[in-house]
Write a protein that binds this DNA or RNA. Structure first.
Lengths: 130, 130
DNA sequence: CTCAACCTTCCCCTATACTGGAATGTCAAG
DNA sequence: CTTGACATTCCAGTATAGGGGAAGGTTGAG
């Protein structure tokens, strides 16, 4: 009983995003009013809020879609959610480790550049310190 | 005096990448042999290796292009490189901090899901624990 | 009546650094 | 003469999560 703009605002999203989610199968096609406008109810908003929480946890839309499919099949997706969050933790740990390794390499280069003089830089190598 | 494949191999890249860099202005247009083939010399390879080092430090091609432009203007780009690496360090620190914040949020959710029972999960919320 | 604020569909664009593939040309070896 | 390994250009696609904007329909208010 709300139009797309209102539902979007209630979920903290834009109308564009709702249409995008519908197109991507994250939000089931909703009823239309006689004028063709989409008509959302509170359930839609709850679902949108769930998607938002998932996004906030760094889950991809594809993963959220999986969870929604399980709930739609009548099962509690909690086990799946638990596994997914474990995977997400592992991914984050990998990313963090990679960034920290890169950070330490860059810090080393940074110190090297600081220690060198521009005059000592070999033009053949563009910049000897990198 | 080497063709594109050889130069690419020498720099640890593909021929496609060399054409892409040339198109993007990172590698100046090189001489052509009478048959129209690009003809690279050792300087080209040095330049490609520089680009590689820059990429390994996580610099964007646009940033590497800047450094190359300075060297082309006859100046030593070391100061600029130094600033750029400082910026890169700051970026990395921000990204790491964001990922660690996300990681801790996800870890909290993960523990919450583990503590809950699927039976206690409210279908209205899809999964109460996320 | 008209205006503003909604809504609809449709298609293209964004960033990044390449990668794939088609159609065609060049050249040394067998 | 043909085959195979190179090379050329150009066009299109990859992944992600939407955003921009056109052209048009609908509605309530003044």
């Amino acid at each position: 009983m709300m139009r797309i703009g209102e539902a979007a605002a209630a979920a903290g999203m834009t109308a564009k995003t709702l249409r995008f989610y519908e197109e991507g199968g994250l939000l089931p096609a909703v009823k239309r009013s006689s004028n063709g406008y989409r008509d959302y109810n509170q359930d839609s908003v709850s679902r949108l809020e769930f998607i938002r929480r998932g996004r906030a946890a760094g889950l991809a839309l594809a993963q959220i879609r999986e969870i929604l499919a399980i709930r739609e099949a009548g099962e509690a997706p909690c086990t799946h959610v638990h596994d997914m969050l474990a995977g997400q933790l592992a991914d984050l740990d990998n990313q963090i480790a990679e960034l920290m390794a890169l950070r330490s390499a860059v810090a080393g280069l940074h110190a090297t550049v600081a220690a060198g003089t521009p005059a000592g830089c070999d033009p053949e190598r563009i910049c000897s310190y990198l």
